[in-house]
Design a binder for these strands. Sequence first.
DNA 1: AATTATGACAACCGCTTTTTC
DNA 2: TGAAAAAGCGGTTGTCATAAT
Length: 271
Amino acid sequence: MEVGGRVCDPKTEEETTMMDLRRGPWTVEEDLTLVNYIDKHGEGRWNSLARCAGLKRTGKSCRLRWLNYLRPDVRRGNITLEEQLLILELHSRWGNQWSKIAQHLPGRTDNEIKNYWRTRVQKHAKQLKCDVNSKQFKDTMRYLWMPRLVERIQAAANTSTAQMSPPTAAADNLSAAASSSDSFAAQVSPASDLTDYYNYPVNNNNNDINYQNQDYYQVNQVFNPDSLTSPPSGSFNHGLEFNSQWFDGGDTTDNLWNSEDIWCLQQQFNM
DNA sequence: AATTATGACAACCGCTTTTTC
DNA sequence: TGAAAAAGCGGTTGTCATAAT
């Protein structure tokens, strides 16, 4: 029997399913078997691949293990600030289309992004006692969380460049904006030059995004000063004064909001 | 020190879409 | 061209580590 250029034991599907299939966490041996097999024969035709490789796993399971964990180009570890920002923005556009979102985060899998959303983003919604799909929460993401991420990205960039060169005019503008007023609007970074943050590799198979040309990611559209600093009247600010505590910033991604932030927001939401 | 709660992530399930024959 | 198989996707569950009690 030859499947996709492979020759292997001609067991039928039924015979294979009769064999007891393994489930649960993959062992190191299984990983090695799968990696070695794909290295020699390539991927695809997962059901026959599983059989031919001698893995007592379903083709689906092998495919998932390869795509989400074993693939050499898969990125592991913490989601960066830039990635968080991109996830928030793309999710606001496309909703739970994880695979589509993942296409624009090189090396990240749809599963990883989905898990990030469920564990981190939904956690904040839960803390605020509001639905993750509600307008209130979306406004919070748009007018608080995302600007704060932008601030931190800029700050990190400035920190690294400051060690090598004098502060830029942009950095001056940023710090001025962050300290010049007590209004929420004025606290938010002007985010005037986010171009660098969106120069991810292009996926030209997708018609609606091209980061290099920036046809899709219209920074001025998404992060322009107006869109970030002028929440629709009555929809969010409710007279809340966003003083400097909102931007005291933590070192970890989960410290974007402290307990006081949460309390303030809860008060706003429960009005 | 033992138990329970929580968070993070890996893996599975069921359904839909695409590909193959 | 239609049926079957394979692949892809999003939702859900399981497992493990760690924090809290």
